[in-house]
Amino acid sequence: MLSKLIVSCGGTGGHYYPGLSIARKAQDKGLDVSLFLTGRRAPGQAEIAEEHGLKSNLARALSLPSIKKPWRIPLFAWRFYCDYLKAKKFLREEKPDAVLFMGSFAGVPLGLACASLKIPTFIHEGNVWAGKANRFMSKYAQKFLASFPLKNESAIQCPTVVVGMPIRPELLEENFKKPDFISHLNDEDPLVLCFGGSQGAEAINKMLRYAYDVMNARKYKLQLVQLTGSDDNAELIDFYGNSPVAVSKQSQEMGALINRANVVVCRAGASSIAELIHFKTKAVLIPYPIAAEDHQEINADYACQSNGFYKLHQSEIDQFSLANAIELQMRQDKELDFSMIDYPDAADKVLKEIFPKI
């Protein structure tokens, strides 16, 4: 009989895509695997999973009520209890051998239901600072699987193992086709790639255009690919005119773009950092200033142990500081060393911790 695994993902792509990567690897190894998805992005995420032959179960996502609105607490408590009962019913029907949590408070009702039914649970943490939901759930878990050494490991109430951050299989390819939307850019001149990730690019988008002008004034022969996360890019495209720039909302060919880039400008999400480490691409990290418990700042500090990364605070950004940071990374000619922060083959390691005999 096949071992059965449920992977619980909630919230942003930073929880979902690593979970999807693990589920796809489990599928390749012959396991019976499905996803448990919560949040407003869940329907779209389920469609992506279906493209890979994975079924998904969707559930409501609850968020903790604000202490400034105490009258919402009774309704929250009732809904939480209802979700807990639904999760127990779901687990009794599915009968999984193990459940893997990728983070987010939205998965807590399922986690408590697992504890009640004595179903083995495992937690994967993407960030260097373990989040509140994962810290709480660790008391019920067999193992806490970390992407990187944890800054707050003392808060974890079960054994911790560093396994790395699973990245999408598409990014593990050796040969990439040049994306059509950058076909007008050449393959010789330096290229800067900028994206905001799931935590927003607006502040970076506003300043990058002016930093690009500064770089041009310094006689850099520079090409730019800017992924804005926005549908409305007409003003930005008009600003760049005939410059060697490609602007798009997003791209499904991130492997090809990161592999081609000389320098990347992005947030300090754990998935982005893991992908940059894989491609050994230099980067300017701009931590999202309102990320929960300042975890992106901590991620960036960890990444900057390698000379491939440079941190710039959003409060420090103007056209000159951003241009200087990009130039610093472009000019760096030291041999890049990512070894002290690199944990490859993460999806395999996660599954080995859950099912040692596979």
Rank of each mutant, 00 (worst) to 15 (best):
L2N: 14
K4F: 05
G10H: 05
T12H: 00
G13I: 09
G14H: 05
Y17C: 06
Y17N: 05
P18L: 02
G19P: 02
S21Y: 02
K29A: 08
L31S: 11
V33E: 09
S34W: 06
S34E: 13
L35F: 01
L37G: 02
R41G: 07
A42E: 13
A42F: 11
Q45P: 08
Q45Y: 11
S56M: 00
P65N: 06
K68G: 06
R79L: 00
R79V: 00
C82E: 14
R92M: 10
A98R: 12
A98I: 08
V99K: 01
L100N: 04
G107M: 00
P109D: 02
P109C: 03
G111E: 00
I119K: 01
T121P: 15
T121M: 15
E125A: 01
N134S: 11
N134G: 07
Y140K: 09
Q142A: 13
L145T: 11
F148D: 11
R168E: 07
R168L: 11
L172M: 14
N175D: 07
F176S: 03
K177Q: 14
C194L: 12
C194A: 15
E202Y: 09
A203M: 10
K206L: 11
M207R: 15
R209L: 05
R209W: 03
D213I: 14
V214I: 04
V214N: 07
V214L: 03
N216K: 14
K219D: 15
Y220C: 05
K221C: 15
T228I: 02
S230R: 03
D231Y: 00
A234K: 14
E235G: 11
I237A: 06
I237L: 04
F239W: 15
F239Q: 09
N242R: 14
P244A: 11
A246V: 00
K249G: 03
K249S: 07
A256N: 06
L257H: 01
I258D: 01
V265W: 02
C266K: 04
I273A: 00
A274R: 05
F279V: 08
K280M: 13
T281V: 07
V284P: 04
L285N: 10
P287C: 00
E293V: 15
E293K: 12
D294I: 03
H295T: 05
E297V: 15
Y302F: 07
A303I: 01
C304H: 11
N307M: 03
L312R: 03
S315P: 08
Q319H: 13
A323Q: 06
K334T: 14
M340N: 15
I341L: 01
D348S: 10
L351T: 15
I358L: 13
